[in-house]
Design a protein around this nucleic acid. Structure first.
Lengths: 188, 188
DNA sequence: GTCTATACACCGATAGAC
DNA sequence: GTCTATCGGTGTATAGAC
């Protein structure tokens, strides 16, 4: 087994990520990954015991990077806006679709996805808790619910924008901006 | 080419749907479909020119049924609750994940998905418009935005429930129920 | 309409040399 | 670490008989 974190290890995950993004997981094969990196097929199985293991490693690497991004956003002066921007733009929605489909088939991936959702939700809920405390008018939704709502909206908007659907998107963005202006005023 | 709507045509789509739901689209092959229906592989290509065509036909059949369900719900006494129930329970979220992943690869499927989203949004927005008119307190969101928000929440809740994540779900359901009580009181 | 048979390509994974 | 070579299996799609 090749060393986790080595140059080849990263290069193979880079190649796999590009294939997944551009062609979907039906094209994510050991031969294609090897071809992209410029090595022979056999080497893929030296660094990753099976293709399922490769997929799990790929997701874990992406999730770790995303959690770092979320934590950095949470530490910024206007964390809610920062989180909203990340949710809207960071992760390619095609990749999400591929991983979701794969998670139903690969048990180890499913566990990683669940853990990532829970960790992200905790970070976001904590931020919302702080933000809502600083606002006088009591909301009728708790911070956890609001966190879920905002996440779900970001996912839907990203997905539909990638498809080419924009119906009602401008209206949503305006409503979200108005909400952020209330909770996190820009002139504070 | 075999006749659209014939018994075999439906049987093959039934088999394909079950495979997609249970094992994902990597297992959706002409051989597996034929095996499930109890015919030879060659016949699948008689009814559907290619496997991509089969997938498109499968989605279109599901979408047509779903639109019928949505329209029926919109005509009920409490249409908003009916739509919410449908969104939460009707379509398997694993199927959605598979179709979303496939839509990025199959251009014809992508077009069908886009059309389905737009038609559904129109139906739901129309219902919300009527429901909000009957409520005195003006909302800060328009009917289209609310429609998108409710749809996105239903999709996220279904997806996470299927994965096994329930963090904040009860809170969301309670908030939604409270909203529905306001807009569509049960004792009216 | 439904079948047998088949062409041809690609897949995951491994044995074993260097 | 990286390679060559290969096994056994599955896939899409078509030709052509009945």
């Amino acid at each position: 087994m090749g060393p986790e974190g080595s140059d080849n290890w990263h290069a193979m995950l880079d190649g796999a990520e590009a294939i997944l993004r551009e062609e979907g997981h039906a094209a994510l094969t050991s031969r294609r990954v090897a071809e992209r990196v410029g090595v022979k097929q056999r080497l893929v199985y030296y660094y990753f015991r099976t293709m399922d293991d490769l997929v799990i490693s790929l997701f874990r690497r992406m999730a770790e990077r995303e959690v770092i991004r979320l934590k950095a956003a949470a530490a910024q002066p206007r964390p809610l806006r920062a989180l909203w921007d990340i949710s809207l733009h960071s992760t390619d929605s095609r990749l999400i679709a591929e991983f979701m489909a794969l998670a139903h088939r690969i048990e180890g991936l499913k566990r990683e996805v669940i853990q990532f959702i829970e960790v992200s939700r905790e970070i976001e809920t904590e931020v919302l808790k702080g933000a809502l405390e600083r606002v006088p008018q009591g909301r009728n939704m708790g911070p956890a619910s609001l966190s879920v709502t905002i996440t779900s909206l970001a996912l839907l908007l990203s997905r539909e924008r990638q498809l080419g659907v924009t119906m009602a998107h401008a209206e949503i963005m305006a409503a979200l901006d108005a909400f952020l202006d209330q909770v996190e005023p820009l002139d504070s």
